[in-house]
Design a binder for these strands. Structure first.
Lengths: 122, 122
DNA sequence: CTTGAAGTACGACGATCATCAAACTTTGAT
DNA sequence: ATCAAAGTTTGATGATCGTCGTACTTCAAG
């Protein structure tokens, strides 16, 4: 396993790639949580209802599109939203697809609406 | 065949639907041409390299997402970009995915750049 | 009324994708 | 050394999607 996975540079950002990444609700949710938190989040700390292997897949897609940056901290993989870089290349895109004025979750993560999600939780 | 196909109202616009419509390059091209032209365009007058049946499919997806409005003029089906309505619901979205500062076509629609596309041409 | 132009409807086909479980790897504690 | 936690990798599977050709419909012109 590589120490650091490959990340595209800003000059290599591709709108098609980015849109393909953002069209998936789970991935958009990841981006939204990252944006709302304003800080890096470990893969396992997201509120998404998919298996670990599926989650890995989604993070890979986001990373290869340039939307997130990933790095290891111990056994955990941290995720950073590449906000500024994305805004530089595609101004307004993230703003448009991010739940802006929507009822924001508490950063402390109150009890979720659904009953028992079998998978990853925050 | 119905005289006027079903169009979603502004209140029914759904981000997921819109993104699914915009993720396809052909459909994004249709939106871009509509935006650049600034006027309604008939289905057959677009510069897209797909068959007629495929084109019909793409227009349907765009219409059901609320991105375009369609109406008949004789045997031709005209297409209107629902710019203002989209901007109202998802501000900045179309701006972000539309070739903005790119070399804009003349609004009078000059001769297209490519040689001989086997399908629909302007 | 016949003909042609412009689309639509209908399957069908191939490719891509999201999903999962199972097995593996790596790291940090015990 | 062991063990568990956190992710990854590797197929496999089922669904969706873009694409096409063919047949059909509608409208306008001759």
């Amino acid at each position: 396993m590589e120490r650091t996975p490959p990340h595209p540079e800003v000059g290599q950002f591709d709108l098609q790639r980015v849109l393909e990444a953002l069209v998936d609700p789970v991935r958009r949710s990841i981006v939204a949580q990252l944006d709302a938190a304003g800080e890096d989040i470990a893969c396992g700390a997201f509120d998404i209802a998919v298996s670990k292997s599926t989650a890995t897949h989604h993070f890979k897609v986001l990373r290869e599109a340039g939307l997130i940056r990933q790095y290891y901290v111990g056994t955990s993989r941290m995720n950073t939203l590449r906000r500024a870089e994305m805004d530089g290349v595609f101004p307004g895109l993230l703003d448009a697809i991010t739940p802006r004025s929507a009822p924001r979750h508490r950063p402390t993560a109150a009890a979720p609406s659904r009953p028992a999600t079998p998978y990853l939780r925050l």
